[in-house]
Amino acid sequence: MAEHVIGTIDDFPPGSSRLVKVRNVEIGVFNVGGTLYALPNICPHQAGPLCEGTVNGTMICNAATEWKHQWVRDGEFLTCPWHGIEFEIATGRALANPRLRVRQYPISVDQGLVKITL
């Protein structure tokens, strides 16, 4: 395990998503509201290129919305380009299946440098 510098904080502004390569491992780096997340570019469902998908909000409809549809939490969910499965970036959790979860790499900012531990 070692820390790898992948760029400066200015390379990953809020709302951005970028694919980087560390020791031949493809990693998606997402800045959600000022917090950085690093996810492997492999979907836990059928190994699709997860991090090449789009970042969106999501639709909800429940008793709290009086059973009306509402679009919420823009920028917090990653959609796999293969099967459209939505993952909550902050937790790695698939909305459609609690058993499906993408892991996270430790990512930190040190004196303006963004580092991933791998």
Partner: peptide, 12 residues
């Protein structure tokens, strides 16, 4: 449901 969950968000 994996693919189309956003069409049926009523199913939580």
């Amino acid at each position: 449901y994996h693919e189309y969950r956003r069409m049926v968000p009523v199913l939580e």
